[in-house]
Design a protein around this nucleic acid. Sequence first.
RNA 1: GGGGGUGUAGCUCAGUUGGUUAGAGCACGUGCCUGUCACGCACGGGGCCGAGGGUUCGAGUCCCUUCACUCCCGCCA
Length: 594
Amino acid sequence: MNKYRTHTCGELNQSHKGDKIILSGWINKKRDHGNLLFIDLRDNYGLTQCVIDKDNVIFKEIEKLPLETVIKIEGKVIERTKETVNKKIETGQIEISIENFESLGSTKELPMPVFSDQEYAEEIRLKYRFLDLRRKKIHQNIILRSKVISFIRSEMQKFGFLEFQTPILTSSSPEGARDFLVPSRLNPGKFYALPQAPQQFKQLIMVSGFDKYFQIAPCFRDEDARADRSPGEFYQLDIEMSFVEQEDIFNIVEKLFINLFKNFSDKKILHEKFPKISYEDAMLKYGSDKPDLRNPLIISDITKIFYREDIKFEIFKKLVKSGSVVRCLVTKNTKDKPRSFFDGIDKWAKEQGSSGLAYFTLEKNDTISGKGPVGKFFSEDSILEIMKQTKAEIGDTILLSCGKQHDVEKILSQTRAKLANELNLIDDNCFSFCWVVDYPIFEIDEVSNKIIFSHNPFSMPQGDINNIDLSKPLNLKAYQYDIVCNGIELSSGAIRNHIPELMYKLFEIAGYSKNNVDENFSGMINALSYGAPPHGGIAPGLDRIVMLLADEKNIREVTMFPMNQNAQDLMMNAPSNVSDQQLKELNLAIRKKS
RNA sequence: GGGGGUGUAGCUCAGUUGGUUAGAGCACGUGCCUGUCACGCACGGGGCCGAGGGUUCGAGUCCCUUCACUCCCGCCA
């Protein structure tokens, strides 16, 4: 209790009847009857209706206050009559009879209303974020975020993890995303980089013997934004453990996630033991390494069928002979969908940059046949074979894509999501987690045609580490894994490669010489040479976890002060120009645009 | 870097085939109203129709250019 309030706006009820109280908060809403005025007073904790009539000398004054003025109200708690109780708010059993008030903070005309469930343009919301954050939904989202972080901290500590901070100013690394750079005043011409993740530090923490580490870690990547990706910065629950195998990490993370999601959401968790899907399987069955398992549609490879004589689909057959694959999706019982539906899907697929989708619906009269634009190319026998391989039944529709494997995977993955959406196949009231495992260490870069690391260069190859066959690098799998929930990639992690000699060999395959590695990863490689424990970890994205729990589609809805798509903070005017003096101290010159 | 969508009052939006004075709700101002909780009623102020150029007798509306925001692709080990 102080001079501003005896209670909050969310706590008064009949038990306070007759009490003299003081509340402070914002004027959320006024209902002015001329001789009787209702004010809904709002603070972080709730709403309380306050009432005053014209007999009070301050009536005229308080009547004039605009919405969102901050006021202090002194008054008495009155029990409402039965007819006037408001069941929609916590304090609806009572109201405050206003005896006196004081304006604590006046307001200019509002650029956006606070009391409204309407959607507003992003620009105005970000510029006046402090107003936007007063609004109920986003206010609750931010509170949820805080509670989620507290919960995670307490769980991790219970599991025996220690929380450490790692440097924000560190060195640039050649692998991965574009770095944010910070010029060094004391070392002219040199730059720090903000960490893309505390990857090397967390491994160094293990080498230092701390055994189990976690951190709610800020990560900085200078890449373009998406709805589920903030520009600039985001947070990870960074975890690393010593003397562990992949399965140990899985156990900890599954426990944490099940507790977390059960605690903060009523949605059903489909598999409490997260299914494990190999990268290869995921790419085949879902066309993506972040499959939404709520979606029942599965992709099948039917390339081989196109070698049959009794299929006359010459375009596909020709492509298959030159190395293309044919894969398909099956929609159940869609025989009554109008032709325009599937033509629309085909048209959409072409707009996504693919060569389109062929389709036919399985029909049975005297014989089984394919109905639709390309159905006539398939004999009854060939259709039976397709039905066998895809488990399709009469009345189902087969949608086919033919092309390079990578392109087919991509378009069928998108089609899978689109069809599920349009056919309403996804139960939005559940969470479906899975592990994607067995990632390849290397892949071929499409542009340069060279072998590059497909994910993390620090991951441990699978197999006997004393005797790994490096002759076919593209076949090498890593102890590398992702958690996916409802089609959203929540995190990736790995058992790390803690053996310098092996690391040099892998880097060599990706085109880095020993000197090169020594230079770029000196901190890591040096540390690993002085008795490093086997270790591994993972780093779930915190913002995306909160997004799922808050049931939001956009990451800015769970971020307090986000930047816009062009990485600008409209409220603080960042980034901004700096003085010549500052530039001079940093030995920097701005190059004029040509 | 590329593609899509949007841009009209402080906010959310409508605006017909190109037609004379650009509308509504909320907010704001004035007045009326003693039980509302999205209070109600009346009146009022408020607009470079994102910007620039063009077509036309005439452009919020059609064309071109450009800017801003947003979604997607590229990118994000």
